[in-house]
Design a protein around this nucleic acid. Structure first.
Lengths: 214, 214
DNA sequence: GTCTATAAGATGATAGAC
DNA sequence: GTCTATCATCTTATAGAC
């Protein structure tokens, strides 16, 4: 198999990470790969085609890499710990920024849309599996749709990444309060059967808040 | 004042809404405004300058428009209702998509970054004020940083908007589970002093989950 | 303020030699 | 598979007439 393909894929990913999808032109990518510009069209047809390949490979690599770590998680606090570490690492190496760029470009490019769809599906599948396993028979699983939460989380992190580039301090504050919310989630999740039943009944017919519940 | 300026600003916003910031070239915008392309540079110096003006005006218009509605909100359920309606309307008219495009472009364009920073600050300020007023002396206000939550929410909605363009069904599912979480938030927020103290103490020294809390 | 014309360069993509 | 050379098109931005 051609080493040129791999070089182009890697260069494409790095170009998007560094300079965004808007600057990921055939010439810019080829220059970074030390490869002739025309080869992009020979191997991938279009620039979008190359970007799609880069997106898919990046997410495949990442997901595979974290699979073992995620499969060993058994508790919600443990999941939050691994999740935080995973997100921090992905963010540091630029993969989250890359995903955000692909998502943005996907809004008006069907090829990028397919790539971004694949990437999001891959991550939410992974997250859904762990979250579902961890929350089995706990309070939160009975209240919320795990798949929906996984999707909301993935999407939210994309937004937070973009927000960081616009207001780093604000993003840090947002992350802190999400961590606080995670603590609340743990507490709610660890409710005993009595409190859990109370919460669920309150969710059913929540209209007038009772003054002093127990 | 020049009507051309206004026409260009409106056309720029609409171009970003329809075709994204990548396609918002001087010629594309000028064509939509039925105005000569060179006037963009005469009035705004650069294309980014025009986009910045468009971003600022769009967010100013929106924020002003919702100010009265938001100022009348007094309860958390009421806030969630207004918030949902606001978000749905902004989404429908394309303002959320526009913001997402600006945020993406902002990652590698300092002028757009300034515009996006202004827009996010404007919204979070507005949200923070209402949320702070509504949550006054309630459970959630004592647990979480209201400003951080406002920022996290704003950023999350940007991510959800991008996600929608990539997987509309997935986005709908994510929104539903966020609505479920909002219900939980309402219940937690309406906890009486007894349960509230229990929750807070659990948050302080949460290590071994007690089997049956009350 | 607005126009035409144009510079100066980047872009995606292809043809054809090797 | 890889290269050079090139086309047609698009881009930002400016000069100068009106």
């Amino acid at each position: 198999m051609s080493g040129t393909r791999a070089k182009l894929v890697a260069a494409a990913a790095q170009t998007v990470r560094d300079s965004g999808v808007a600057a990921a032109s055939a010439r810019a990518i080829a220059a970074r790969a030390h490869v002739n510009q025309a080869l992009i069209f020979y191997h991938f047809g279009t620039v979008s085609g190359l970007l799609e390949a880069a997106c898919r490979q990046a997410v495949d690599d990442s997901a595979t890499h974290y699979r073992d770590q995620l499969s060993m998680v058994t508790s919600l606090p443990g999941l939050l710990a691994v999740g935080r570490e995973l997100h921090e690492r992905e963010r540091a190496c630029g993969n989250v920024a890359m995903m955000a760029q692909f998502m943005s470009g996907a809004q008006h490019d069907p090829v990028l849309a397919r790539a971004a769809n694949y990437a999001m599906a891959r991550w939410t599948t992974e997250i859904e599996a762990v979250v579902g396993r961890v929350l089995l028979d706990s309070t939160l699983a009975q209240i919320a749709d795990v798949g929906g939460l996984a999707r909301a989380l993935s999407a939210a992190f994309i937004g937070l990444e973009l927000y960081e580039g616009v207001d780093a301090d604000g993003m840090a504050r947002a992350m802190e309060s999400l961590n606080q919310l995670a603590l609340v989630a743990e507490v709610v999740n660890d409710l005993g059967p009595v409190a859990r039943r109370a919460l669920r009944s309150k969710l059913r017919n929540r209209q007038p808040p009772t003054p002093n519940p127990t």
